[in-house]
Design a binder for these strands. Structure first.
Lengths: 193, 193
DNA sequence: ACCTGGATCAATAGTATTTCTTGATCTGGT
DNA sequence: ACCAGATCAAGAAATACTATTGATCCAGGT
């Protein structure tokens, strides 16, 4: 994780030490929840290894996936974390996972002891905002088919790792529809390229 | 659940009302965790329906089951609940389950508003202590084989409900060993009776 | 030194649960 | 009237769990 921060802005030894001090490692097994609807989010989560999803259940208990996270990325409900309010979201574990976590108390200490971290997290959040904005744009402008092919090319790693149902839920599409796209492409290989 | 308390000590209407007020119902689906190692236990859990286990993972991630709970019984990590410390145990759901839960704040109110509940929970805990003591005694005094047959006769309901591996883990025996006992008994039906 | 109760490991078989696919039918928008 | 895509139901395919069995090993009691 130090590498991760370092790649955004180089850190000195003291700052690296702060990270070691304030973050702790926690392991989760498949199907465990990192955050459940109704609980207050207590940690920011950096994924060291594994795979998770953040989603909201609708009134019929169908999950709608907001975000996947794999090694090297973050997965947080910032609203619940900073405002200390009950989360509407769930975060659960798709593969056995190791997270580096930092709690509210420690992140304040971190910001106070090295302002560089304000900047690092600012940059991080800005990047996520841009990604989310792009995804939003895709969602309102592209057909389900195009969104799926875009997803394939931008996340080729995830398709072998995550069941199709989840990808469908992430794209806001039915699982059957994806299945049909695939079989159509199998018959006619130069579709969606 | 009111019946449950009532059967220990009869309740008046006011006390029944307190229960309705302070406990809430929560549903869990199979494989969900009610308590995860590292979290602080926030509720006492009374099982309305379903089946759960409480266990500790050892350093090789092998679970060792401390307790099963089915409808009408309780399953709690009291240490974590009352001391507000991180739990060493996990509680997870073996079948879809409905729990009545009471949080720390409400149980204090309950004790304050009706001292009878102190007595009820005292009795409850004493009974559990006795059961645990008996089990401990069996564990240090009986052979694995006898412990298994004892388990069969004292929990005939559980054998069709809970996978053998879990029963093995509860008895502190290997799953293979139970399998052999069963096949031995199949060949020679009057064993262990 | 030698049984015995039981563990561990590995392979296999049997079941159950998830995941994917397919066909049929329906809906809202152009 | 057509098209993109949803929903429902049924099956097939793929995985993951669970149970059984044989082989081998090991510690404690006599």
């Amino acid at each position: 994780m130090i590498d991760f921060f370092n790649s955004i802005i180089p850190l000195n030894e003291k700052e690296k030490e702060l990270i070691r001090q304030y973050f702790h490692l926690r392991c989760y097994k498949k199907r465990m929840f990192v955050l459940q609807e109704g609980d207050v989010c207590q940690h920011l989560n950096f994924v060291l290894s594994g795979c998770l999803r953040m989603y909201k259940d609708d009134e019929n208990a169908n999950p709608h996936i907001l975000l996947f996270a794999t090694e090297g990325s973050w997965i947080n409900d910032l609203d619940s974390y900073y405002e200390e309010k009950k989360s509407l979201l769930n975060i659960d574990v798709l593969e056995n996972t190791e997270l580096f976590q930092i709690n509210r108390e420690n992140i304040v200490k971190l910001y106070l002891s090295a302002p560089k971290f304000d900047r690092i997290f600012r940059i991080l959040t800005e990047r996520n905002l841009v990604l989310l904005q792009n995804r939003m744009l895709e969602n309102i402008s592209l057909s389900a088919e195009d969104r799926y092919y875009n997803f394939l090319s931008s996340h080729p790693d995830l398709i072998n790792r995550i069941p199709q149902v989840h990808i469908a839920s992430y794209l806001g599409v039915s699982a059957e529809f994806i299945s049909r796209l695939r079989s159509r492409r199998a018959r006619n290989p130069f579709m969606g390229t």
